[in-house]
Design a protein around this nucleic acid. Structure first.
Lengths: 132, 132
DNA sequence: TTGCTCCTCACGTCACGTGAGGTGGC
DNA sequence: TTGCTCCTCACGTCACGTGAGGTGGC
């Protein structure tokens, strides 16, 4: 196990404060790969990406404890099933969109933009997320 | 204009406290259709549904000021375009889903479930939202 | 010694309300 | 008068950090 990072290196590389790394560690969102005999945390460099992922998820509106719960989640959920269901529901929405009042239309658009952000974030995760 | 409601009727019908109706009114999220000469607010009964919509949007993670901004938004956004884009991006995600690690898979599933909630909410809006 | 780290306790900020109390309409 | 309403100022709670300060490792 080479190249483990101390907190300030990690913070710098991830673009957050040391305090935030400390905070996330205490929440259990990230864990040091090991500790020195003196108790210094030593992080796997992949944690840099993991922090990036956490920030993305936060920006998508997930609370830290939800993110934490997901990282701890046991089995692989059925992503394919939910994606299929999503596709179907979008078809429903598409037809509805053609005959709706403007106020609802505007609100719905906002929701769909948010949904789109989530989908983009999920895609980026599948492409880039380290399996820490 | 018949059947205007006072604050306690509205609160009761919408299932929120009078204080909350007051709060939303002050934020401009809802408006009384008129006021009595003494200043009592009189709300359109459709406001009951509107409050329901607001609660749904809140539950979907929208902040009140965003909801407010959307109600105030001018033009009809291009819902059809964003829905189409969403559909395309879901196709991308579907193919990715077949070859992803479990950690990313689990996170992505969570995001998709949230996206699905947004889509369901948007659909319900298009079906039910009063154009207040 | 110097600068780094850990830990803990407290504080800061923001969103979303809620309480209370004085005021006037009904 | 009674109960309703308005308004305002303050407080409560929770999430997400951040500050500061004492401690020990490097």
């Amino acid at each position: 196990v080479a190249n483990l990072m101390r907190i300030s290196e990690l913070a710098q590389a991830a673009g957050v404060s040391k305090r935030t790394v400390d905070f996330y560690t205490n929440l259990g969102l990230i864990q040091p790969a090991q500790r020195t005999t003196g108790g210094y945390r030593l992080y796997n460099p992949l944690t840099v990406e993991l922090i990036g992922t956490i920030r993305q998820l936060e920006a998508s509106g997930m609370a830290l404890d939800e993110i934490s719960a997901q990282f701890a989640a046991a089995g692989p959920a059925d992503l394919a099933a939910i994606v299929t269901r999503l596709g179907n529901d979008i078809e429903t929405l598409r037809t509805l969109a053609e005959t709706s009042g403007t106020a609802a239309h505007t609100m719905a658009t906002t929701l769909m933009i948010r949904a789109h952000h989530l989908i983009v974030t999920a895609t980026e995760l599948l492409i880039a997320m380290p399996d820490v």
